[in-house]
Nucleic acid binder design. Sequence first.
RNA 1: GGGCCAGUAGCUCAGUUGGUUAGAGCAGACGACUCAUAAUCGUUUUGUCGCGGGUUCAAGUCCUGCCUGGCCUACCA
Length: 681
Amino acid sequence: MTRRILVTSALPYANGPIHIGHLVEYIQTDIWVRFQKLIGNRCVYICADDTHGTAIMIRARKENRSEEDLIADMSGQHQRDFSGFHVQFDHYGSTHSEANREQCHFVWSALRKADLVVERSVDQLYDPEVGTFLADRFVRGTCPVCGREDQPGDNCVCGATYTPIELINPKSTLSGATPEVRSAVHLFVQLEKLRSLLSEWIDSSDALQKETANYLKGYFLAADKELKDWDISRPGPYFGFEIPDSPGNYWYVWFDAPIGYIGSTAQWCQAHGESLDDWWRSPETEIHHFIGKDITYFHTLFWPGMLHTAGFQLPTKVHIHGFLNVGGEKMSKSTGTLISAETYLKHADPDLLRYFYASKLTPRVEDLDLGIDEFVEKVNSDLVGKVVNLASRVGKFAGLTGLSTEYPDDGGLFERAAEAGDAIAAAYEATDYSRATRLIMELADAANPYVEHAKPWEMKKDPQRLDELRDVVTVALNLFRQLAIYLAPVLPSLADKCAALLGDPLTSWDQSKSPLLGTPVQKFKRMMERLQPEDIQKMIEESKQAADADAAAEALPSFNDSDQPLKDEPLAEEITIEDFAKVDLRVARVVAAEQVPEANKLLKLTLSLGGEERRQVFAGIKAAYEPEQLVGRLVVMVANLKPRKMRFGLSEGMVTAAGPGGAEVFILGIDEGAQPGQRVH
RNA sequence: GGGCCAGUAGCUCAGUUGGUUAGAGCAGACGACUCAUAAUCGUUUUGUCGCGGGUUCAAGUCCUGCCUGGCCUACCA
């Protein structure tokens, strides 16, 4: 029976590029979807960019462009990266779409009708400079419990948890300003009213891995605790959808993000003449969400509550995976292990990472580790040494012989591999890809000795033995073809290459059950390159450099320079280097500075050009500098300026400075190490 | 503090409801082959199955205590 299955991955946030950590999930999901399609189920893979929230708003401002422009840009990048890793969505939408707004309105009115929404005033920190309320992660300050400085807004390394309002000396990470406490009305969903529904769903639906169900029951749904109300609004300004019956308030990004699954499906339905109800309101349809463990509660409490209230089907299964570590450590920018999809693709084949993740993924909520040596050894040994090599070692003969018209005796290898198909399929179905790849490699391990013992290279030397040779080729390539089919969900491009070699598209799992016979074989081409440890090193190196560059850029103040000065005083006429050389600029040290009581603007400076050389200069900087500030400083002077007799004495040069005048005068300094008397070239 | 998971050969792991001398792949050693991307094939070394108790005719497998490591502990996308 054909199942109808809707599959989603979590929506990537539009505030950053896709990295190899994200890819665990998209590859996990894509493998499952490809598997479902291969065995003939009706399966649709839906995703979208998650675009709303303060972070997007702030970043758009910083980059001086509209949010729409920013998210369009990011969505393009995301889709490019996913496609680079052969992650194939049926539809990729955006939470910032009319389709999604419509669904949000619908869910919202259902929540209102069910009387689940309450209003309450909330005290929150507000950044007066940026003009926005601050989420916890946008505040840092001193821990009220242990006194450590520069701690996050909600907890401290000492283990204490608190609210940002309790922080001592809080600072906004957006502007550095000191936030003030302001109160605003927020809207809450009363989850407690949905307790029995949620309990029952968690208990009896089989939608959750056992450890997740236990965790939820023990922690959130414990008998002695109430489910807290869920704050789903944010006061403006906020990049998102305004709440229709609460002007000035916007839905919190976590309200409209999961609804984005539905909104994006609606777009797909629109484009393909499908009915949304068939996919979200039909008990005939399975709904599978793939998510990371960090967003468990959003998908297992709030989301089912919303779905149920709005009359949608509850998820059939929420598949939760752990995080990616690299070399046993958390990924980090500074060590270069937070490798972006883009960087990876410059140095290695995406299928290798797909295979490695597959070999590590189980149905459990466990973190997985990308060990660099392990990665290289695993993919080279399994994929190149075993699988591809099987085709490669008979590839040259195959062009001559083609495939036999009857399947030869292979000692039962093909049949055993065909029988293994069910167990492999069951492992894919259960998202136990580790098991699936292990079973497949057992088959590959059995196939290579066949070729070894058959000795096709001896047959090739004897024209009399062409039929025998053809039989060996037929067996080897059919065993290879089985492997390619079984691995097709993981390695789509290998399946394509196998199909091209044999002139027979791989479209169905059942093709693994009967051998391909009586057809010619195309000229063999290499199907996969070995991975070199240096390839990975290059990725890490490049990521590290990118991180350093980012950090450097971050450290700089944002350069938002006005164009006014240049307008006030346009550039002078072009000169030659000779013209410039006429001006003798010298480093000089201010050895004395004094007020000139009768002058309105002048200070009298004594400048040293080193040794005994002294110049007396009157400078118009009285309003900007105190004499004491200047003594000892190095300045740049025009040393060959014709001396000018002034009312207070002779001025023997000029100190260079910029600014419109008055108090706005800035003397040119020079970096440490320069010596008085040196010329400026 | 509480909860969950894991601890099996140098490495990554498999060991179904307890049942014969505990397995695979990789790495190592020796040998073979040359069709193949220094790939492959054969033989082969290595384990107090974290530690201590207990149940049983029989425990890596069940119970219990402990040790070690990891993860989680509601407004962070």
